[in-house]
């Protein structure tokens, strides 16, 4: 589908609309790929490919909002820009609440669409790097033993070694040993860095 470059996925049942949108993207140096239906898109979509969706709201078969729900179910966090012939307010509100980046009326202003697309690609890139970081952090934390994890929880909460020893009913020495192993295993140079890793692992 793509070579890792972000791709603008255009889903619209109208060939001319798909083609012209593709040209518009190309004119801005953006790679794009068109699909005549939501199902066609789902059949080929690989979550690993970065990009965003330019999606017609009303299509035969699966509608734009249904595709949005399906992607949500699959945990794919592709930013969506909805296009529609007329934006009826309840649908628009629902779509934006469902995480759509924007809602543009057809025919669209090309510059505005391109701006939204770039915004969406930025959002996608940031969320991907955040997710990659979280994934890395979770991997680091997975190296810890249950006891080390227990100690980590108290460390991150800002308790002293002494307090932790008291709560866990172990010696201060033992806490210090656990702590050193934690720093080593997570490759954290300082307490603030350790806190950041834990925070990032907790995010999606």
């Amino acid at each position: 589908m793509s070579d890792g470059r972000p791709t603008v996925f255009i889903v619209d049942d109208d060939l001319a609309v798909r083609e012209s949108m593709g040209m518009l993207m190309a004119s801005a140096g953006l790679a794009s790929c068109g699909f005549p239906s939501a199902r066609d898109f789902l059949a080929e979509y690989e979550p690993g490919v970065p990009g965003c969706l330019v999606l017609d709201l009303r299509m035969p078969g699966m509608s734009g909002t249904e595709l949005q729900e399906e992607l949500d179910r699959r945990g794919a966090m592709l930013p969506i820009i909805f296009l529609t012939a007329y934006a009826d307010v309840p649908t628009a509100v629902g779509a934006v609440r469902g995480g759509a980046v924007d809602f543009l009326e057809k025919p669209v202003d090309g510059e505005r669409l391109l701006k939204r697309v770039r915004d969406a690609l930025g959002i996608d890139a940031r969320s991907r790097s955040r997710r990659a970081e979280a994934e890395g952090a979770r991997e680091l934390l997975a190296r810890l033993t249950p006891r080390e994890s227990e100690v980590l929880k108290w460390v991150v909460a800002g308790h002293t070694n002494k307090a932790i020893a008291k709560v866990l009913g172990i010696s201060r020495r033992t806490v210090e040993t656990h702590r050193a192993r934690i720093m080593h295993k997570t490759d954290a140079a300082s307490l603030p860095e350790l806190v950041r890793i834990v925070g990032s692992a907790g995010s999606r």
């Binding site: 109208d14 001319a16 012209s20 040209m23 296009l83 012939a85 057809k106 669209v108 202003d109 090309g110």
Partner: peptide, 14 residues
């Protein structure tokens, strides 16, 4: 709106 969208988008891309 579909043909109008295509027309305006073709023109803008061009």
């Amino acid at each position: 709106n579909q043909p109008l969208t295509a027309i305006s988008t073709y023109a803008q891309a061009c």
